[in-house]
Design a protein around this nucleic acid. Structure first.
Lengths: 157, 157
DNA sequence: TGCTTGCTTGGAGTGCACTCCAAGGTTCTA
DNA sequence: TAGAACCTTGGAGTGCACTCCAAGCAAGCA
């Protein structure tokens, strides 16, 4: 219900954070800590331990630190990365594409342009997706109004 | 890019088609025709013949007419139904839920209330989804701006 | 009439994103 | 020091939404 309210800034094709500094994504976390066990990360992110290990295995979550006995020790950096992954996942971006992005990040600053292009393509996808959903919303409203007792006959439902 | 533009009407919790008569969904179709072979429906909808048969098998597309030799003959009514299914699919509604809705339609007018409730729940889901996407858009913009040469350091990417 | 293209079926296969398992090592609390 | 709770691994399994297959019948046309 906070659809229109959350982004009142109208930006057409050119984009620039003109009136508000949109923050990077993040999960709330205890202050002054930088070592988290896998179960702590589970509690903070809502992901399962299975999924966290799987992310690592497929290269989506590389370079996780380990304790001297081999147990995972996640950092705040890792949590930030997981927050971004969570956002990208919401867009419907395939995991394989996110792995590709992680790849680019690992290769350093020389991939800035490529990363920007990937994000811009994703941005376009999200915009299309939102437009589709607005369209669908109109259809739902039409049908809900019908069932609530309005006039026109629906095609079949 | 036509996100804000497409739905300038602000409706908070109460919904009513106050200023525009949003039409039901439909696929463009040849005029004055009401019999379509499966391949014609494929051409019109973009679905595959496999998917159309599968929809029928699982009960999402019941009562499709047959020719005297057993081949499917789709009607305009069927196309309308497929258009609705297409819209619902876009919302991420599981196929099983759509089958449940088809069930309700089959049972007739006595299920109007149930259908309305189902659609209203879907509507809420879509609204949440849109809000999530707007959120994600803000994150994407933040990062794109960074890669385009802005100030703040991103968490890891 | 023969040929090509299209349609039928049940059942098996695919790809994605997890999700779980068994067997064993680690860490914490009493 | 014992027991419970947590962590590790590779590999197998799950659920969803298709997607494909083989074998055979149907339709249109030269």
């Amino acid at each position: 219900m906070t659809v229109m309210e959350t982004t009142p800034r109208s930006r057409a094709a050119t984009r620039k954070p003109d009136n508000c500094a949109s923050a990077p994504p993040s999960y709330p976390r205890p202050e002054g800590q930088d070592h988290y066990s896998i179960s702590e990360v589970v509690a903070l992110t809502g992901l399962t331990a299975h999924t966290l290990r799987w992310y690592e295995r497929i290269g989506l979550m590389p370079d996780v630190d380990r304790s001297h006995t081999g147990q995972r020790r996640y950092s705040n950096r890792d949590l930030d990365w997981l927050a971004l992954v969570g956002k990208l996942r919401l867009t419907g971006m395939p995991v394989a594409d996110m792995v590709r992005y992680a790849e680019l990040v690992r290769r350093g600053e020389q991939t800035f342009d490529e990363r920007r292009e990937l994000l811009e393509a994703t941005r376009r996808d999200v915009l299309n997706r939102v437009a589709e959903l607005q369209d669908t919303l109109a259809v739902l409203d039409y049908k809900i109004d019908f069932y609530a007792g309005a006039r026109p006959t629906p095609e079949r439902a």
